[in-house]
Design a protein around this nucleic acid. Structure first.
Length: 404
DNA sequence: TCTGGGGTCCTAGGACCC
DNA sequence: TCTGGGGTCCTAGGACCC
């Protein structure tokens, strides 16, 4: 039996949700109706466009470009900052509404969900349900969504990306040639900025061109990715709507520094601050890490990463920091101007599935106790209420940001 | 005051082993 | 005693997503 899939995509999510918050606080203008964006902080060198209003889009402003450049396109542009915790609340409201229709929901991101309605339609038509959901979200939650309707996730997602906002679109397999093949390859999911020019040089310009290209030729040139792009261009996607909440496979924090720094002692302090945040999150998940990874971005935007496997899985800040620090020192044998520092842990495993014997030695126990004391204080009074020696300076230098 | 931050997955090369 | 081949693990880098 054919699957009945919906893709729900919040229109300009961060901007819409911020607009609602501002109206609640008594603002006279709805920023959805003026040229406005949600942006990072230019003074902290993170000034990029995170979301834009339709009016801002009319000026040619695109997500990801610098606020500086956006302002050049539209001098009257209004810039607002976002609040991630608020966005999470709106995301949850949407999710709870969708749960009234099916429990087979995949939360693809904070503002996108896939719904498998196959066993929940009774005698209703899928498209009618889509219109009903769209209307209810608007009336009950106050923002608009686009909904894509089809038989698999890829086609539903492509459909929700058609004309915006506040629209329902179908993209059934029979509609692929008329609705999808005329689009440029860059519109296809999983075709990014590096691949598009390569396809262009092969005279593959539209999704239709790609669909009709010999699959083996694509595999030869692009490997697995070639196979995937050919299947997507032909509307083939057998992946399931995954409603399980997946445990993370890695956890990382990174920060762009207010100014480039080259002094290794200062970088160490940043690494410590980031490690504390990462390890805290790791412990909150009740997981242990097997790999520590450090990222440095130079002033010339060159990204360097080093990683190293630990002797045994850990969630100890001290152990992770020791490894991260040694990796950084390895990377900075030659002096470099550093713009961004990142720490992440990978190879995560659940704590209880590991032999507890690994923690039997006295030293680990002490470290774990210290960490859990710090965690409980942090939990009670908010993150960053406890700092270790040497961190105060960094806290002044690097204020950890909300994570997206 | 030009270019975020958090993820997942894939690839290629080297080390090491049989 | 001058050159194979397969397999696994580890690491660095890159592509893509929101």
């Amino acid at each position: 039996m054919e699957r009945q899939i919906l893709h729900i995509d919040v229109n300009n999510a961060f901007l819409s949700w911020t607009a609602i918050e501002l109206l609640k606080k008594g603002s006279k203008i709805d920023i959805r109706t003026i040229p406005a964006i949600i942006g990072g902080d230019e003074t902290r060198r993170s000034g990029i466009v995170l979301a834009k209003s339709m009016k801002a889009k009319e000026f040619g402003i695109v997500t990801g470009e610098t606020i500086y450049s956006a302002k050049q396109k539209c001098p009257s542009l209004q810039v607002f900052q976002g609040t991630y915790s608020k966005y999470k609340e709106y995301s949850n409201k949407l999710y709870n509404l969708l749960l009234e229709y099916t429990d087979k929901i995949e939360r693809y991101s904070i503002d996108e969900c896939f719904l498998d309605m196959t066993n929940y339609l009774m005698n209703a038509k899928l498209i009618d349900k889509a219109y009903e959901i769209k209307r209810r979200v608007k009336e009950e939650l106050g923002f608009t969504v686009n909904i894509g309707v089809s038989n698999n996730k890829l086609l539903a997602k492509m459909a929700s990306d058609f004309k915006k906002p506040d629209m329902v679109h179908t993209l059934y397999p029979s509609e692929i040639p008329s609705k999808m093949w005329n689009l440029p390859v860059s519109d296809l999911f999983m075709l990014g900025r590096k691949t598009v020019p390569k396809l262009d040089s092969m005279r593959i310009k539209t999704i239709g061109d790609l669909a009709k290209t010999d699959k083996l030729k694509l595999i030869k040139k692009f490997g697995k990715h070639g196979s995937l792009m050919w299947e997507y261009a032909n509307g083939i996607d057998n992946s399931e709507v995954n409603s399980k909440v997946e445990k993370p496979k890695g956890i990382g924090n990174s920060t762009t520094l207010p100014v480039d720094i080259s002094e290794i002692e200062k970088i160490d302090e940043v690494v410590l601050a980031l490690t504390e945040h990462v390890a805290y999150r790791l412990r909150k998940y009740g997981m242990l890490a097997n790999v520590v990874n450090v990222q440095l971005r130079t002033n010339e935007f060159k990204d360097l990463t080093h990683q190293s496997k630990l002797n045994s899985a850990t969630c100890s800040t001290k152990v992770i920091y020791a490894k991260a620090k040694s990796l950084v020192h390895e990377m900075l044998k030659e002096k470099k101007q550093i713009r961004l520092v990142g720490v992440r842990v990978d190879g995560l495993v659940e704590k209880d599935e590991l032999q507890m014997s690994l923690f039997s030695n006295e030293n680990s126990e002490k470290l774990e106790k210290l960490d859990s004391v710090l965690d409980s204080i942090n939990q009670k009074y908010g993150y960053n209420s406890v700092t270790r020696a040497g961190k105060m300076e960094v806290e002044k230098l690097v204020k950890l940001k909300d994570s997206q």
